[in-house]
Design a protein around this nucleic acid. Structure first.
Lengths: 200, 200, 200, 200
DNA sequence: ACATAACCGAGACGGTACGTCAGGTCTTGAC
DNA sequence: GTCAAGACCTGACGTACCGTCTCGGTTATGT
């Protein structure tokens, strides 16, 4: 290996897992804002210094806990049409509201990405990994001729995720999986290939 | 009058303004996350206790500073067509990126709204005051027959603000005022009245 | 007179009394250490500024409340013998312990005299007014030939008040009016064994 | 050992000492009333939180500083007679007035014992440790037949310390080590005129 | 009679220190 | 070399009172 290990105790998987589990539990019980490294250490029985050895900050730890314990992979549907592909995806996306723990976590991570300069990049990478799925669905729609060939994939993807995050963060109106299909329908109308389309 | 004043020294406008100015300066210089009440007190020469007398928390103070000192009123255009009305509005909306101070503040406030339970409602109220402008433009478009009469105004408004906030917060792609018109054009295609439209 | 009064509203006796009463009540209810000018103002309905106009500090206010409302004049007995004069005086002195309010106040005032430079002199004056009574009893005893003509009145007075304050302040042993006569007897007789000594 | 140490950084003796030294210096320079934990922290370079970890309150810290840095052990003389034993002790006791720092500290601690409920007991324990020395001298005097076998040791001890504290706290008359022997003599002999009394 | 001026309540203000909390680092001794 | 334990410095929190200072309004003279 490149990282030469010259003897010594190996990293404890128990400690690693205990930290993630404790973080998930505390998120569940008390939400994100009251989550502290000290409480995670106390709950997990893992020393604070050990936590700092393996994670650079609270949000990075939480993101690992989220992607490992809390979250389910986003679906990558292939139903034959963009519209139904997106309907499946968005329905699943909106379903997060059924799980308060996930909602809290997503909101907390987004908040941290604003406050913690070092976390912006990791968070953006995670966001982009989810954007890539939608972008791929859209590209396939373009190839199939379902969508405008001049489509701005970036903006189109934002039209999926933007309103989702906006409602999640502001809660001015509820986010309902039952609305997902309608939202997609309305969107598609604007993205669809038209006779004289020459957008951008 | 309803607000009965029965004696007592009057609130110092100098102190009030000094606090808001100091907050704006510190935001400009060092960003949101390092902004503390103590620094605002030190910079403004106003006592910490006086600040706590008038503002319940950092974000409420910052929001007042933003709406008073930093921000310009959003435009309420009336050009004759929804599309150009929205184009004007969104262009102005996107122009915020030309002012790093405003970007920082908006991102900070959104973050606080996630972390500070008491701030959610004031923040939501402010967000809704801006949503109302767009909602009004859209309603006028519906009345004029430019837009689908069954339009879900709430979702349509989210299609304006959602992608805006999403890019502002994640910065996965730049927010460019020059793209505003194209974004609006693409959106309108989906919202426009169609012969057999019966969405929702 | 020297203090020329050229018109103007006269001092409100109601406010004056309300302050002293409120101070006494708060002392009774919560003790000395939690007594603040702000609470006295709130309780009495008298403005803080009015209190500061008439009293320089908390202890001076409390001392006035004590000597006016709380305390009884010390007796100045004249029974015919020093021993019984002192016995009467000391019994009354020790009786203060039957009144927790007075105990708290005395202890509080003594504490303030240590911490507040400006209060030392007023406090000392009050202490001396009580010392003068005992000194007078002792001087009469000397004149009558009951006591040593070379008696150091100052030290003798301290032998009366010193142990009293010491027990009041430290509470290492109880202060009991029933012990007063014995203490006086022991003082007068002395500690040394004499032919007919049978103290206690 | 009884005190099990299972890992953990050990308490820093430097920090411990620096706090006590800083407290003593500040007492020396500015007295007790202006002594604050914050100033001790600033002067010593030890964090406020570290100070609060080891001392529950300002007076407990000061008492440790006093007994460690400032004060000298009280003497426990054994000259062969109570009178001279006491004379030695009281002379040393009164000598405290030669050291303003000690006077301030004693007065401050006594004040705190009145204001801080939690400090009363520790303070009383310290007072009692000094009383025990005098009580022992007196008991030896009783055993030797020098003193009245029915002597109330408690009150007799108060006759030593009471006047001392009283003068220290009120300063109505000076406390002079040169007077110590005379005070003891008077105590022992008593106030009553006896055939051969020639006090002072 | 009425102006003057001291009084009074209310309460805002600049301060100081409090005691707490969490962050992130470092040290010790066990494994 | 990693781990649990926990001491350490740092910095900000939000609170409590302090003593001072406007305010607007009241009440006694004294001319």
């Amino acid at each position: 290996m490149s990282t030469e290990r010259r003897g010594g105790r190996t990293r404890s998987p128990e400690a690693h897992q205990a930290v993630l589990t404790a973080a998930a539990e505390l998120l569940e019980e008390h939400g994100y804002q009251t989550l502290t490294i000290e409480k995670i250490a106390a709950r997990s029985g893992v020393a604070k210094s050990t936590i700092y050895r393996w994670w650079r900050s609270r949000p990075e730890l939480v993101m690992e806990a989220y992607t490992q314990t809390v979250d389910r992979r986003m679906p990558e549907p292939d139903t034959g049409s963009v519209q139904s592909d997106l309907a499946v995806f968005v329905t699943e996306l909106y379903r997060v509201v059924k799980h308060p723990l996930r909602v809290r976590t997503l909101r907390g991570l987004m908040a941290e990405a604003q406050l913690d300069e070092d976390f912006r990049e990791p968070f953006r990478a995670w966001v982009n990994s989810r954007r890539a799925i939608v972008a791929h669905l859209l590209e396939r729609g373009v190839e199939r001729g379902e969508l405008d060939p001049g489509l701005d994939i970036g903006h189109a993807t934002d039209l999926i995720f933007g309103p989702f995050w906006y409602r999640l963060l502001v809660e001015h109106e509820p986010l309902d999986p039952a609305d997902a299909a309608a939202h997609v329908t309305r969107l598609i109308k604007g993205l669809r290939r038209t006779q004289g389309s020459e957008v951008k």
